[in-house]
Design a protein around this nucleic acid. Structure first.
Lengths: 148, 148
DNA sequence: ATATATTTTTACGGATTACGCAGTATTTTG
DNA sequence: CAAAATACTGCGTAATCCGTAAAAATATAT
């Protein structure tokens, strides 16, 4: 999908996800309907997402761990997709360097790191190694709230 | 700040950042004003953020790199805060393990990895080592759009 | 180049929502 | 227990959202 200047400007305005489409429209010199149509298309195509995010430190019993993963498989992207479907996983990055994947995991009181490894990671084969980085303090880290 | 069940429910509803407060209110059995004031308080205190997020892969000339940082200083949190103020840095995690910090950096055509290291990281002292992980594919990774 | 099809934008009206404020209820504090 | 602070509700008004239909712009085909 081609992102033109108007779409970029719309996205920038949505730094505040609640700003009225009308205001964006006025700032950009287009109609409110145009903004609405474009936002809908951007979100439908997965380019844009307007969501509430939480600072995990502010929510009791919420923890974050980053996991560096090495896999035996050559198809890193496919493995990345598999990881992205595991419970607790908020995002997966396929990367260059020491690891193949860097996975962000959200933990709760009921869903601990142990559970993540024993119940989730264990279901994926050809995992060569994992290395955990427990986040004990963060800056500007905002994540979508898990449903439960 | 104490997060009660109502706030948790509000945050969960805001998975769609555009959902009307009225609808949240009806679902929760409270008034629209209550939802509004609570959302305001949560955002004012930095617990909640309602924002438009982009899939960096969908925006031309946008790249993401994760950087593992080891510092010589003992005060990791302070170093983390310093990093969080650098241009391009979207978030910083202070972690256990091989690195002290894991930094997420957003790159553009004008702001390359080289520039990030030479112009930004170099201004911070007592950095023992850095290790880059260039993200060449991601799943569910959504980041706030940089202003420029 | 003209005509046709497709997409995008605009305009507009009714339904819905956001906002401010005043009053009431609830909780906290002394 | 009383006073103060905080939180919640109800309501009127202004603004926004949303569907639809027409107009404009863009792309495609003959």
């Amino acid at each position: 999908m081609y992102i033109d200047e108007i779409n970029l400007a719309i996205i920038r305005h949505l730094k505040d996800g609640r700003v009225p489409f009308k205001k964006i429209a006025d700032d950009l010199g287009v109609s409110e309907g145009t903004v609405r149509t474009r936002v809908k298309k951007l979100t439908d195509e997965g380019v844009l997402d307007i969501a509430g995010l939480v600072d995990p430190e502010a929510i009791p019993d919420l923890g974050v761990v980053l996991v560096g993963v090495k896999v035996k498989d050559m198809d890193l992207v496919k493995k990345g997709e598999e990881f992205s479907k595991l419970k607790g996983v908020t995002s997966v990055c396929v990367v260059t360097g020491r690891y193949d994947l860097i996975v962000t995991v959200l933990l709760t009181r009921d869903f601990t790191m142990l559970r993540f490894y024993t119940d989730e990671v264990s279901t994926i084969d050809k995992v060569q190694s994992v290395e955990s980085f427990v986040v004990y303090k963060s800056f500007n880290l905002k994540l979508p709230m898990p449903l439960t």
